[in-house]
Amino acid sequence: MQNVTLHVEGMSCGHCVNSVESALKNIGAKGQVELSTKTVQVQFDEGKLTLEAIKETIEEQGYDVV
């Protein structure tokens, strides 16, 4: 398992947290959003997912991974 921290712009509320965490769960990753730092801690199996796929999933929810 790999752990990464991504800086994500545009998140501001509980809906944002649920949206990102649910989307990550749907692709097989575990995400934990921290609104105060605008970060997402992501744990995933690098044999099944790529970092690029994770970034795309977050961006599909309407947020910017920077």
Rank of each mutant, 00 (worst) to 15 (best):
Q2S: 12
L49A: 12
Q2P: 01
E59T: 05
G14I: 00
Q2G: 00
V33F: 02
K25I: 02
V65D: 10
N18E: 02
K30V: 08
T39L: 00
V42H: 09
E59F: 10
E60G: 11
M11Y: 12
K25N: 06
L6C: 08
E59C: 01
A53M: 11
K55H: 11
E46V: 03
T57P: 07
V33S: 02
N18F: 04
Q43V: 09
S22A: 12
L6V: 05
I54A: 01
A23K: 09
H7G: 03
Q32D: 06
T37I: 01
F44N: 07
A29D: 06
A23H: 11
E56C: 03
G10R: 04
V42F: 09
I58A: 00
E60C: 07
K38V: 03
K30W: 11
A53K: 12
L49I: 04
V40T: 00
H15K: 13
I58R: 04
D45H: 15
T50C: 12
N3F: 14
G14M: 10
G10T: 02
F44D: 10
A29I: 00
M1F: 10
V17A: 02
M1A: 15
Q61D: 05
V20F: 02
I58D: 07
L51C: 05
D45S: 10
N26S: 06
V42S: 10
L35Q: 02
K25H: 12
E56W: 10
L35W: 08
T5A: 11
E60T: 14
Q43M: 14
V8L: 04
A29T: 02
G47V: 01
V42Q: 00
Q2N: 10
S19H: 09
A29G: 08
F44E: 06
E56Y: 14
E21A: 05
G10V: 00
V65H: 04
H7V: 12
G62M: 08
K55W: 08
K30L: 12
S36K: 15
D64H: 13
M11N: 06
A53N: 13
S22Q: 13
E46T: 05
A23E: 01
Q43D: 08
Q32M: 09
V42T: 03
V33G: 07
V42M: 02
K48R: 14
K30S: 13
V17G: 03
C16F: 09
Y63T: 01
E9F: 05
M11T: 10
A23G: 01
G28N: 14
S12K: 15
G10H: 00
H7L: 11
V65A: 09
C13L: 02
Q32E: 12
G47F: 13
N18C: 07
V42L: 07
S36W: 14
E9Q: 12
D45M: 04
N26P: 07
Q32W: 04
C13R: 00
I54W: 05
L49S: 06
I54S: 02
L51K: 15
M1T: 12
V66A: 14
K55A: 04
G28C: 08
E9K: 15
T57Q: 01
K30M: 01
C16I: 06
K55C: 11
A29K: 03
G31A: 04
T5D: 07
H15R: 14
V65E: 06
L6I: 04
C13I: 07
V42R: 02
E52N: 12
A23N: 08
E9W: 08
T50H: 12
K38H: 14
G62F: 15
G47W: 15
E34H: 07
E52Y: 10
E34L: 08
S19L: 00
T57V: 01
G47D: 15
